[in-house]
Design a protein around this nucleic acid. Structure first.
Ligand SMILES: [Mn+2]
Ligand SMILES: [Mn+2]
Ligand SMILES: [Mn+2]
Ligand SMILES: [Mn+2]
Lengths: 221, 221
DNA sequence: AATTATTTTTAGTCAAGCCTAATTTTCACC
DNA sequence: GGTGAAAATTAGGCTTGACTAAAAATAATT
C-alpha cells in the first residue's frame, strides 16, 4: 500500500532524504534552503509528516525518515533518475538541462509508468550524472568510487559520477568537454590548490581546480 | 510569451475547449461535471480566467476561450495526445490505460520537452484513440471521417478514431478485438436498433450496437 | 555564568481551490 | 404574463501550504 502524497509532501521527504547521511538528521533550515521556503513552513510540514508516520521529528533537533518515509523517498529518487535518463538517452537533452524537468516528472503518480519506463530504458543502474538508480525494491547498485582530488599521480581512472551536480558545475564540465565515461591518467596534482592535471585517452589534457576535483567521482581501471 | 498556469487553471481551460463547439459556449454545469467539481467552484475560476484574459465569461450564458486561451488549450491537447502516444507506442500501455496518466503528464511545463517528445515519436498526426494532434502552431491535421452508424451496406471502410473514448467503451472494443486501423466491409445494418454487422479483412465478423457505432469514426478506402 | 547569535517553533495572516447553502437569474410551459 | 425547475451566482467556510513577526530554545563566546 503506497500512501498518496502531495507534491509538497513529496518534495519535503526527498529533501530530508538528501540531507540525511547515515545517522545524521536533517535540520529545518537546511530543508527550507533546499526547497526555497522558510523554516516556519518546514516546521509545519514536519508536524504533518510526523502525524502520517513518514518522519520522526525531534523538535529543535531535526528530522529523520521512518522506514515508510524512506521507502517513499527511494521511489522518488528512482523516478527522478529514471526520467533524467529518459530525457538524456531518448530525447537528447544535455545532462545540464534535465534536473528541473525531472523535478516535475517525478511527481507523476503511476506505478505502472515507472515500471515500464525502467524496462524501456533497459533497467539502467546509473543516471546521466552517474548517480545510482534504486530498483523497485529500493536497492542501490554497488560501486566503489574515489574523488579525483584523492587520486594519486599516475593512476588510470574513469569518471563515473559528478557529486552534487549544480548547473554551474555541469556548465563548466561541458565547456571543458568532460563527461561521464571519460578515461584519463592523473599527470600532476598541486598541493597548493588541489588542482589536478589529467591526460585523456583521446588526447586532450585537462586541468581542473581542487574545487571541481572534489566533485568528480572516479573508478580505477 | 507563455503565461504560466496552475494545474487547475489548465484543466478548466481544457474543459472549456472540449465543450466549446463552433460558436457555442461552455456552460458552468458542464465544466463542473467534466472536472468532477461543483458549479460554484467553476464560477470562481471563470472569474479568475477572465481576469487573466484567457476566457470571456458572460454570466449566466457560459464561457468561451479568447485567442490566448485557445492557444493554451491547444498546447494542452497537444501535450495530452503526445503523451498518450508515447505511453502506447513506446511503453506498451493499452489504449484504455493511458488517459489518467496523460492527464497528469500534460501539466509538466517545458516547451523543449514537448518539442523533443514530438520529434522522438516521429511527429504523429493522431493519438492512440485516433484523435488529431495539433502541431506546435496549433494546426490540426485534415481528415474526413464518417460515423459507422452512417455507413452504407457494402462500403469498405477503416476505423480511424473512437469518438469520446470512455473506459467502458474501450473495454468493450478490446473484448471484441476492434482497434484503430481495422479494415472491414459493412455487411448489414438493422434499422430497428442501428446495429451494424462488419466483415473484417482478417476474417472475423463483428456485430456492434448502434450506441457503439455512433462512436466509431471511419474512413472510406 | 551571562550574553549573544542562530535556529526553531509558535502565532497569526493570506491566497488558492475547493465545498455547502442561500439567493438570483434564466427559460420553458401553462 | 405567471410559475416552477434548472442553472448560475453569491456568501461564507474549510484545508493546504505558504508567509512575517514574535517568542523560545539551543549553541557559541566571552
Ligand atoms: Mn520535485
Ligand atoms: Mn541526476
Ligand atoms: Mn489534466
Ligand atoms: Mn486520446
Amino acid at each position: 500500500m503506497t500512501t498518496s502524497l502531495t507534491r509538497s509532501e513529496e518534495d519535503h521527504i526527498k529533501a530530508i532524504h538528501g540531507l540525511q547521511q547515515a545517522g545524521t538528521s536533517a535540520f529545518t533550515k537546511d530543508i527550507a534552503d533546499r526547497l526555497h521556503t522558510k523554516a516556519s513552513s518546514v516546521t509545519d510540514m514536519l508536524k504533518k509528516l510526523a502525524e502520517k508516520g513518514l518522519v520522526k521529528h525531534a523538535p529543535y533537533y531535526g528530522a529523520t525518515l521512518t522506514t515508510k518515509g524512506r521507502r517513499q523517498a527511494l521511489m522518488l529518487v528512482r523516478k527522478h533518475r529514471l526520467w533524467e535518463t529518459f530525457l538524456v538517452q531518448r530525447l537528447g537533452f544535455g545532462w545540464d538541462e534535465v534536473h528541473e524537468v525531472a523535478e516535475q516528472l517525478e511527481h507523476v503518480g503511476s506505478e505502472k509508468l515507472v515500471e515500464r519506463l525502467d524496462e524501456y530504458l533497459g533497467r539502467p543502474a546509473f543516471d546521466p550524472h552517474g548517480d545510482p538508480i534504486p530498483d523497485a525494491q529500493g536497492r542501490f547498485p554497488e560501486r566503489v568510487t574515489l574523488p579525483l582530488v584523492d587520486c594519486a599521480v599516475g593512476e588510470r581512472i574513469r569518471l563515473v559520477a559528478v557529486k552534487d551536480p549544480s548547473d554551474s558545475l555541469l556548465h563548466l564540465l561541458n565547456e571543458k568537454g568532460i563527461g561521464i565515461g571519460l578515461e584519463a591518467e592523473v599527470r600532476a596534482r598541486q598541493d597548493f590548490d588541489g588542482s589536478v592535471e589529467l591526460r585523456t585517452k583521446q588526447g586532450p589534457v585537462h586541468v581542473v581546480s581542487g574545487r571541481v576535483a572534489e566533485h568528480l567521482l572516479m573508478e580505477r581501471r
